[in-house]
Design a protein around this nucleic acid. Sequence first.
DNA 1: CGACATTTTGAGTCAGCTCAATCAGTGTGG
DNA 2: CCACACTGATTGAGCTGACTCAAAATGTCG
Lengths: 251, 251
Amino acid sequence: MALYHRESLLVADSPLSSLIRKLERYHALDAAERRAIERLPISIKNTRRGQDIIREGDNCDFVCMVMEGFAFRYSIVESGKRQIMAFCLPGDIPDLQSMALDKMDHTLGSLRACTIAEIPHKAIRDLFEEQPRLAEVLWRETLIDAAIFRKWLVSVGRRSAAGCIAHIICEFVTRMKAIGRSDGVTCEFPMTQTDLGDAAALSLVHVNRSLRELREGRLVTVFPNRLTIHDWEGLKRLAEFDPSYLQLGGE
Amino acid sequence: MALYHRESLLVADSPLSSLIRKLERYHALDAAERRAIERLPISIKNTRRGQDIIREGDNCDFVCMVMEGFAFRYSIVESGKRQIMAFCLPGDIPDLQSMALDKMDHTLGSLRACTIAEIPHKAIRDLFEEQPRLAEVLWRETLIDAAIFRKWLVSVGRRSAAGCIAHIICEFVTRMKAIGRSDGVTCEFPMTQTDLGDAAALSLVHVNRSLRELREGRLVTVFPNRLTIHDWEGLKRLAEFDPSYLQLGGE
DNA sequence: CGACATTTTGAGTCAGCTCAATCAGTGTGG
DNA sequence: CCACACTGATTGAGCTGACTCAAAATGTCG
């Protein structure tokens, strides 16, 4: 701890700092709003890779925020095949919808060991009453999630295997950059090829071949656990990636 | 008009009646809430089949409600292939997200001739301020939309051609029943086989063969413009359809 | 009735699948 | 420090569900 620069310490101090940073990307929070978030009662839970955080059919009275690590949304169909619908990064609240909907229609799993903050629905409801502006900002995040689902649907349905994988990679790097975990060229990559296949609705073998294609085309290299982009424009072109749906501003 | 029963007339009187009926499914509206909706300033627009209502990239200052007819969300990728992401039924507001997001990430088209009510963003914002409960109910609809996108992603990615088409049919009939336009056995079916293919990410030829399979299996018959279910349980089983994500209650 | 949209069927092709091995990296107990 | 177990990546080979091309049949509407 003592090794850290003072500014990092300030940020790291609050368990919900990644949430605050994320919300501030859209709208600077005032002191009262920030304090209201910091005062949220949370209970911290750690999960291991592969462990489910919330299951399809569950009906919780709290929401989960990913503090550290990576989670993902998925369903398994009767044939045993798994479809991954989204990756969740630090600062994300993947089940905010549970505030309004009956029960989970999909499962939330851990892609890597995660630190999860559980926040009671009631506390969120009180927060929204006290700071209506925060309700707006948080609901907006669920709309961005929906836009991401739509883009995935287009990718899975209508793009080539390599194009679909490229789109997933483009989106991931862009989101990682937005939370300060990538310089846009290289970043941590928490998914195995099996995970990537279940996200792109492809078999493991075909993912492997498509990744080789991307590597040999000098577009991107996916080492286990790390990803390096050689040709961002080429990758974007192949993926037909337009980041505006992520609502990150700029670009 | 004179042919209609008085009750139908009452319902048909307000242009936003299909919206009111939809919202009441979840939460009975009081007189003030209903009046606030009825007072919304709207401008009515008619579209023909195939005509776009809002285009990808557009940035409007109003939202569209489908009063009559059927709309659909879609994108076209560079190869020329089209992916349909959702069908919109009377009472739906498919672009409510435009209140919070920058620009459309997909296009809204007319599946059949539509009557669209355009409602200014400002009027909706005022409505939300005056009747915060309505904001909650409307935002909830966007969460249901997101659940629908997730189910489609699973279908397109991981189900067989027949299973995916069956899921689309199950969902459509269930939603039609909820707005009083199906008895659960038969209903109007506004999509061509080409449309169905672009929704399920299948070719026209393969859709045709899969529909024959469904017909020969005595599950469902899709006439042009009309659909008849022979074996609801069998169809549900093939589609692995569980309607709870539509949040219609009951069942 | 003619023009056009939609459905149906046949036939050959291919992107992506499954099965089956092999190889590499990592962690663990002795 | 090494043998073993395990997870994940890579490659080969043959298969198949879904595709494309092509044409005919049917339905719809001015």
